[in-house]
Nucleic acid binder design. Structure first.
Length: 558
RNA sequence: GCACUUGUAGGGUAGUGGAUAUCCUGGAAGCCUCCGGAGCUUUCGACCCGGGUUCGAGUCCCGGCAGGUGCGCCA
């Protein structure tokens, strides 16, 4: 309903003022939506904005399309308050199981995220990518788009060569119950250590890279076996976080199927293409790039950037919108990729960048073995959650407490990450990560469980008849926020900023808790009880839908 | 050095050029004869600095200062 009403207000104001931009702004405490268009007109018409606002309000009231709107001018501000019918319709819509689902669209979306090198476990920096990416996947689906989530798997680069060298020479035994990514990273860290002590082995890495490039069967098997072992571990971690990729795409695909050579031929035809022996690069200084964008090495072998161009062309052939989630360290290479694709007349991907997560002592590196893994974070968080559940719900069986603790832990981790806007760099802090005493996923899950509990009691007590007559301010404030959920879904898709959803659902839980405190539900009588139960049901459904889009389980009891 | 990015109460964080700057944490004071206290209420406390644009700037522009990232024939 919210989106429809906003559009209605916009049309009315455009119609009356003739202005293209009618300057809508959030009404805050004053209104559901407000317009400051009178300021803009005041300048053009050289009249007092307060007078203009009053004139506009008079015209709106007389307009046949103004039904359901309470319009008033407060000084130069034009305030719109939506009617009781709007509230009723919104709450009715919010009880539908698919609430927030927007009409189906035909534009196919490929969303690539995580794509960490398979040289070790995902760490807390990687999962910022994962959480932002998976939330976007879920939001796009909610917004009606067909989406394919992809993981681009580096199966041939230098870092993988180091892993493969380690696997070939170190002969480590896999420990009992050791995950594949844990097993692989020991090789990677130690091989790096050895290379540092004995630089003379470096050429062996280069040799292995040349062999994989040439498709030497034994080398290919070694690389791919190592990558697969690690990727299996990564997939376990992703699954534990409620994250699923529809497709893992191997980087070697584009090297061996000829795609890379094809795109390089097109790039080479550009006037910006430069050569230095066999080496080929683009001079993008006219586009504001200071460095060389190297696309072929002097020994003739390929580079990541070239394979990436081919990968993106392939993605374009399968979709109408291609979105990448990348760390801020990829900003330059991402911009060069976009520029180059545009230069050869191809659609560049949309890129969502996020800033780094560091440790108090500095940045995380897989190579140096300095990182906190996602698995460790999840395990510690679950441990804390289990302590909490055991204190609060001693009557529950162990399996049930475990189940709740897992859902709380995954929720806490995902929410803590997604709630911060992507452009802020953050410092990981154990104390903060394990603190549920503040507003976080458990707080929101708790509001949902509470709503479920009220509905359960009402059901046992003979149920209720749906009723949409709301008058109490706590009821309308909650109902009006519920009404905005589909609008938020749309906004996240347009702005590619999933943290808006975290803010939305936190506010929703806040409003529900205030309503719960000041508007007794089960103790109320008659239609008031029915209306409040109806609203609790709409709240429950909206909280569940919002949590689902965030990849967080909406627990019915915790 | 150059480029990108961030700077909001003691700590963290939201904020589409518009009305009284959001929420958590922390400090102070309260709320279970009451639907689940992982809760609620009251209160203290902030827009890095200097210019500019504008009727109006936390928000836009320029210049500082401070943090992060990048500037590989790595990915």
């Amino acid at each position: 309903m919210y989106r429809e009403y906003i559009q209605k207000v916009e049309h009315l104001l455009r119609d009356i003022t003739g202005e293209d931009d009618v300057l809508l702004t959030d009404g805050g405490d004053h209104a559901d939506i407000a317009s400051t268009v009178a300021f803009a007109l005041a300048k053009k018409e050289r009249k007092n904005p307060g007078v203009i606002a009053s004139d506009i309000v008079a015209k709106i009231i007389a307009h046949p399309d103004a039904a359901g709107l309470d319009v008033s001018a407060v000084g130069p501000y034009i305030n719109f308050i939506f009617s009781g019918e709007y509230v009723a319709d919104s709450v009715r819509a919010a009880r539908h199981p698919d609430y927030g689902q927007l009409p189906a669209r035909t534009e196919r979306v490929i969303l690539e995220h995580t794509s960490a090198n398979p040289n070790g476990p995902l760490h807390v920096g990687h999962i910022r990518n994962t959480v932002i990416g998976d939330t976007l996947v879920r939001v796009f689906r909610k917004a009606g788009y067909p989406v394919e989530a992809q993981y681009y798997l580096n199966d041939m680069g230098r870092q993988i060569a180091i892993v493969a060298w380690g696997v070939k020479h170190l002969h480590y035994d896999r420990l009992p119950n050791e995950k594949g990514d844990e097993f692989i990273v020991r090789h990677y860290v130690d091989a790096n250590k050895i290379a540092k002590e004995k630089p003379e082995i470096e050429p062996e890495f280069d040799e292995m890279m040349e062999k994989i490039e040439a498709g030497d069967p034994e080398t290919v098997r070694l690389f791919h076996d190592s990558v697969d072992i690690c990727a299996d571990g990564i997939k376990e971690t992703l699954a534990a976080m409620n994250v699923h990729h529809d497709r893992f795409v191997r980087e070697t695909t584009f090297l061996w199927n000829g795609d890379m050579q094809k795109v390089l031929a097109r790039v080479e035809a550009l006037p910006e293409a430069q050569h230095d022996g066999q080496m080929m690069y683009l001079d993008l200084s006219d586009k504001g790039f200071g460095n060389r964008y190297v696309l072929r090495r002097s020994n003739g072998t390929s580079v990541y950037a070239a394979r990436d161009l081919a990968f993106h062309l392939w993605k374009n052939s399968q979709c109408d919108r291609s979105i990448d989630v990348l760390g801020a360290d990829h900003k330059l290479i991402g911009a060069q990729l976009q520029t180059t694709l545009a230069m050869i007349g191809e659609r560049p991907p949309e890129i969502v960048h996020f800033e780094f997560v560091s440790l108090p002592e500095g940045s995380m590196t897989t190579r140096g073995g300095v990182f906190i893994t996602a698995d460790e974070l999840l395990a510690e968080t679950k441990k804390r959650a289990l302590e909490e559940v055991s204190v609060r719900r001693p009557e529950l069986g162990e399996a049930e407490r475990e189940r709740i603790a897992s859902a709380v832990a995954v929720g806490a981790v995902r929410y803590d990450i997604v709630k911060v806007s992507a452009e802020k760099s953050t410092v990981f802090d154990w104390k903060e990560a394990l603190d549920f005493e503040r507003q976080s996923a458990p707080y929101i899950q708790y509001a949902h469980a509470r709503a479920c509990s009220i509905l359960e009691k009402a059901k046992a007590d003979g149920g209720f008849a749906e009723n949409y007559s709301f008058s109490d301010p706590y009821e309308t404030a909650l109902a009006k926020h519920i009404a905005q959920f589909p609008y938020v879904i749309e906004k996240v898709v347009v702005e590619l900023r999933p943290h808006l959803l975290a803010t939305y659902v936190r506010d929703l839980a806040d409003l529900f808790n205030s309503f719960y405190r000041f508007a007794p539900v089960l103790k109320a009588e008659g239609y008031v009880r029915d209306a409040r139960l109806t609203l609790v049901d709409a709240s429950r459904n909206t909280l569940a839908a919002a949590l689902d889009v965030l990849g967080i389980e909406a627990l019915e009891s915790m």
